[in-house]
């Protein structure tokens, strides 16, 4: 029998089996996440088909520049994340730390831009609630669009904040030299989570920012 890696749990035969089981577990979690967000997407679909004009009006209030830049920032963070995984597979400690840090910085940039957007929208009275003001006969329907906007982007941002925590934890462990070419499962799995969050945004961007622009 080959020598056992320190990170091998006793209930697995070898590192390959352990990685495979962990990956499947992460995907099972991501399936629940798909359906978690899926409920919001289904709600969006129902109200969009019910009030198409109001959704177009609401979408016009959003700034495509912010949305597009944030999409690019998030895609960039997926690239740095996958490079962190790549260097973890090669066992290059400082490069893992560097690319995890780059991912964290890009994630922070995304959240910063989102915060600026939120404060503009709240200042303009577009946050659903007692302060909501919108000059249109169908203002009530536009408010529903903004309920979806804040709920969906808010839940997405919440996932990003959790991701930032996970990245910080990975950076600490990577710095300590816990990941190498034979054991890098946590980096790989947080990568899966981070890319999933990226995919959610890939759908949110056109559905919220780009409708009724012509």
């Amino acid at each position: 029998m080959a020598h056992e890696h320190a990170a091998l749990q006793h209930h697995f035969d070898d590192m390959d089996q352990q990685l495979e089981a962990s990956t499947l577990g992460m995907w099972a979690f991501l399936i629940t996440e798909v359906l978690f967000f899926g409920g919001l997407f289904a709600g969006y679909l129902i109200y969009r088909t019910k009030f198409p004009e109001a959704f177009d009006l609401g979408s016009h209030e959003l700034d495509i520049k912010f949305g597009a830049i944030n999409t690019a920032v998030l895609i960039g963070s997926s690239l740095t994340m996958v490079l962190a995984v790549y260097f973890a597979q090669l066992g290059q400690r400082m490069k893992i730390v560097f690319f995890l840090f780059a991912t964290l910085v890009l994630g922070g940039t995304f959240l910063g831009i989102k915060a600026v957007e939120y404060s503009h929208k709240i200042h303009d009275g577009l946050l659903p609630g007692p302060g909501f003001t919108f000059d249109s006969p169908i203002a009530d329907q536009v408010r529903i669009f903004f309920s979806f906007y804040f709920a969906m982007t808010g839940l997405h941002a919440f996932h990003m904040i959790i991701g930032a925590g996970l990245l910080s934890w990975l950076m600490y462990n990577a710095w300590q030299g816990k990941y190498d070419s034979s054991y890098n499962t946590p980096v790989e799995l947080v990568g899966l989570y981070w890319h999933f969050v990226d995919i959610v945004w890939i759908f949110l961007f056109p559905l919220l920012y780009l409708i009724g622009r012509n």
Binding site: L79, V82, E188, H195, D198
Partner: peptide, 8 residues
């Protein structure tokens, strides 16, 4: 693309 390549 993200699922097939970034998520391996």
């Amino acid at each position: 693309l993200v699922i097939l390549y970034f998520m391996h």
